[in-house]
Amino acid sequence: MSAKTHEPITPNDQIIRDERRPVLRLVVRNHPGVMSHICGLFARRAFNVEAILCLPIEDGQRSVILLLVDEDERLEQMVRQIEKLEDVLEVTREEDGHEPFEAMARYLAS
């Protein structure tokens, strides 16, 4: 890897490390538009997504998306709505799911 080109920035550790905030792990079909389907669900219910990580997996046909979201009584309803999306194959709630976001934060801060 060549040297980073960005200036260090300060991620908000308070949010990222807040253990009460749930992390959702989605396995989705990997094609353009899936992300807007998912983000749209949150956006039109005025439900904030604090952080997103997305990586293609296996042969690239599928992706894993990690969402750091607010603890909210509507979360169960949100999860059910996400499960209804055709391109979402799996939704699970990650315990101890903050580590990848913390790694991302370290990357950005360095």
Partner: peptide, 14 residues
């Protein structure tokens, strides 16, 4: 059309 119809369809395709 794809973007416009995301919130008003069960599913959509381009």
């Amino acid at each position: 059309t794809y973007g416009l119809t995301i919130p008003i369809t069960k599913h959509n395709y381009l």
